[in-house]
Write a protein that binds this DNA or RNA. Structure first.
Length: 272
DNA sequence: AGATTCGCCTGAGAGC
DNA sequence: TGCTCTCAGGCGAATC
């Protein structure tokens, strides 16, 4: 599933193909996404030039020359490809956006948890982005911020950092890995984690996400062709998906525990 | 207000 | 081979 590093990698991958390009025909084959594709999407995109390819949390944000912005979220199973129009359609190819380069931007999403939404120029803040916490690389994200915000909270620290209102980008995998590196057990109450531990955790979250982005950039670069599937960060996982296997640091068997409906992996010796 | 649960979806993999 | 069942999960909405 695409998490923040994957979305950032995709952004970097498509950027050179879309910047400055003018949009031609837009084909919506299935509007039934997380939110229905607006009926006037095609009409409003036609003729627009793409001036910027940005990202906010897991949303791709394409800035258009009339001030509108196109929000694309990949949900769980979404893909976005830049390809030649000769590439045959496959199941779940929901939206095509033709570019004046002759290529097209194709949105594909089997589970349809993703979204393709037009953000009106008139609205300075999109409702879906309004509540989001800082980006992990934003200077506003640091240990003291987590510490202050977490006081009095009884929820597990893992759920706390996975909450998009707190900070964006710490999905299930990266939360587990960050907590391992910071030496904090995922089930601990957020309100009982110390200031020093949060300082460590904040920098580990940044570290893990940065590593994943760097690796995504090396192995997930074939956007003009077809798939963007690969193992990238997998080799570097210390705990995620490693239940029963020995901890890479101390050899203790990695445990799995469901916290807040999500599988959580940790080392009982390295994490306290 | 914070915590928890629900619902939307399909494909992969397990079990029979 | 083919069916059924379970699980996965982003994230807003509803509920506790």
């Amino acid at each position: 599933m695409p998490e923040l590093p994957e979305v950032e990698t995709i952004r970097r991958g498509i950027e050179p193909h879309v910047l400055g390009r003018r949009i031609g025909r837009v084909v919506v084959r299935d509007p039934r996404l997380r939110w229905p594709v607006q009926p006037d999407l095609a009409a409003r995109l036609a003729g627009r030039r793409i001036e910027q390819a940005a990202r906010r949390a897991k949303y791709l944000v394409l800035h258009l020359d009339n001030g509108d912005r196109l929000l694309i979220h990949l949900g769980m199973s979404g893909r976005i490809w830049v390809l030649d129009p000769t590439v045959p359609l496959i199941k779940h190819d929901h939206v095509d956006i033709e570019l004046d380069s002759g290529q097209l931007l194709r949105f594909h999403d089997p589970r349809r948890f993703g979204a393709v939404l037009l953000w009106n120029a008139g609205e300075p803040h999109h409702e879906l982005l309004r509540h989001l916490g800082p980006e992990p690389f934003d200077p506003a994200f640091h240990g003291d911020y987590l510490f202050e915000l977490s006081r009095g909270r009884s929820a597990a620290v893992k759920n706390f950092v996975m909450d998009g209102n707190v900070v964006v980008g710490a999905g299930n995998i990266y939360a587990a890995e960050s907590l391992f590196r910071a030496g904090i057990r995922p089930a601990r109450a957020a309100g009982r984690v110390t200031r020093a531990e949060y300082a460590e955790l904040a920098s580990r979250i940044r570290e893990v996400l940065n590593e994943a982005i760097v690796q995504g950039g090396t192995t997930l670069r074939d956007f003009a062709g077809a798939n963007g599937e690969s193992g990238y960060f997998q080799q570097d996982l210390y705990v995620y998906g490693r239940e029963g296997e020995p901890c890479r640091r101390c050899g203790t068997e990695i445990r799995r525990k469901v916290i807040g409906q999500r599988s959580s992996f940790y080392c009982t010796s390295c994490q306290r």
